[in-house]
Simulated assay, not measured.
Amino acid sequence: MAKKSRVKNRQAAAAPTDGPNPRAACPCGSGKRYKACHGAAGGVFVGRPFEGLPGECDLVALRELVPSATVSLAVKGYESTPVTLGTLLPGAAPAMSRDSGEVWVGLQVQHNYGDVSRDVAAALVQALEARAAGESGVFGLTTAPGDGPRLQDLVTNSSLDVTVHKGFDWWIGDVEDKSDLEHALEHANESVLPTERLTSVEAAYWTSVGSKEHLRWVMPEPEDALLTALARLHVAGDDVIVPDARFVGMFRAHGLLAPVWDVPVGTGAEALEEPAVAFKKLLDETLADDSEITPEVRSARAGLANRQVTIR
């Protein structure tokens, strides 16, 4: 009887509950178990931090996939201050109040306190307050931001106009004497992979890694529905974006999935525009299919799930 009780207790302790599995790796990317990281007492983890913001899918891409891009933000209470949201700022700074009067805030930063939206907003507010006081400098977080505002509370844009850059020359666009910065800029530019955002669909990015080209497309649909639709398309042979392209899997980041295709070298972004529109139309039609899935689709769906790589 005692042995059965111990087994039952172990099973109950291991049973999944709502939210991340306490024994699994923390979704923040720290490498620790969730229970020892953001699942600990006082910890917080927001799985979909950009939900409700315009351009949520693009924000996920800029946070995790795109090397150099910027977006102009309109911020409540600071309408007269030019604010730029960038993928990566000089020195991986969280936020900067510039001598030019601009304020910059970065998405690709080293800290993560569990709610990316609140983290970014906290650094942004620091820089905005400094700018209002006529101060310049770098601003960021050394501790969790607490109960301050999130980006959803600050950003008033109705849409996001993303500009993808070939390098980081925008870092010195507001600097008069650029001579002392040229070496650092050259070093940063060497790390940038050619990347372009498709204009015909939302949050789809072509990139070249030299020997390969990829299309990475962040999609807003719920994971279960999207997996099923992609599995249906795969079984039907309709998951090929362009001839000789191959659907290779997907990233999971900040609560959304980003399917990835290998495309033939030399394809480029422009050649993907019309095929992406056609695929999106087919995907939407397939998402609306609520018929029972076949064993082939169920098997394909399991295969797709096994090819997911969780970034955050």
Rank of each mutant, 00 (worst) to 15 (best):
K3Q: 15
R246K: 09
V120L: 06
A127K: 07
V218T: 13
L198D: 02
V60C: 06
P22H: 05
K4A: 14
V138P: 00
L287N: 08
G114D: 05
L151T: 03
V192L: 11
Y205L: 01
S100V: 04
P194E: 07
D115Q: 00
A24G: 15
V7K: 14
A95M: 12
D169S: 15
S30Q: 14
G91V: 12
V44W: 09
L233E: 04
A278Q: 01
I241D: 00
P264Y: 13
S68W: 11
S158Q: 03
V109S: 08
S136E: 06
L283H: 03
V44C: 12
R98E: 14
T84G: 04
E79H: 10
K35V: 15
S159Q: 09
R23G: 05
E213F: 08
Y34W: 09
E56W: 05
V309Y: 05
R232W: 06
E176F: 07
N112S: 12
V46W: 01
S211Y: 11
F168R: 07
G19Q: 03
S200V: 04
A123C: 13
L128Q: 01
V201P: 12
A229Q: 08
E270M: 08
G29I: 14
D169M: 05
D115A: 05
V164Q: 02
P194S: 11
G31P: 01
R33C: 08
G55H: 03
R23S: 13
V44G: 02
W261E: 09
D18I: 01
S179W: 06
V105Y: 04
P145A: 06
H111L: 09
L154A: 09
G31W: 09
V44N: 06
S136D: 03
E182L: 15
D239H: 13
T207G: 06
R252N: 02
P243N: 02
A40Q: 13
S117Q: 10
M219Y: 06
L73A: 04
K8N: 14
L62W: 06
V164C: 10
A269F: 01
V242A: 05
E273K: 04
A14F: 08
P264V: 14
R312S: 10
E196S: 14
E79A: 15
P54A: 13
S291W: 01
A269W: 04
T207Q: 12
D115F: 12
G134N: 07
E221Q: 12
I172H: 08
P145F: 07
G255Q: 05
A258Y: 00
L226N: 03
A300R: 04
S68E: 02
V120H: 10
C26M: 03
L226R: 00
M1Y: 02
V175P: 02
V71C: 03
E285N: 09
V209E: 11
A231S: 13
A203Y: 05
A127F: 00
